[in-house]
Amino acid sequence: MHVELEAVRDTLVARIKGEIDLAVADELRRVIDERLKAERFQSVILDLAGVSFIDSSGLGFILGRYKKITGQGGKMFIVSARPSVARILEIAGVKKLVPVYPSEKEVLQN
């Protein structure tokens, strides 16, 4: 697993690569939460283009960040999820909570 963080104006973009399961969920949580603690962002984009697999530990990581960010008055978006990952997000009901967009561009333009 690899995560690249980039600040685009008041948005934190987290580009995640690899498989998100129990083995990496805690590390992802730590890396993103540290950045959110250090800087103030209005929104967070999770770019899942590089994510080839996600299970309930990964979904828990996403929902946990969503609760944290929205609890602070911010917004969170998921972009570029592959069909296999998007299907799991849909079945789990994550799409009902977290807005999903085709790419970072759509979110940043709005």
């Binding site: 309930s56 530990s57 979904l59 828990g60 946990g64 079945i91 789990a92």
Partner: peptide, 15 residues
């Protein structure tokens, strides 16, 4: 019993 995993493990297995 763990909020961060959403309790979905068995749900996926059943689905």
């Amino acid at each position: 019993s763990m909020e961060d995993r959403m309790g979905l493990g068995f749900v996926f297995m059943q689905s």
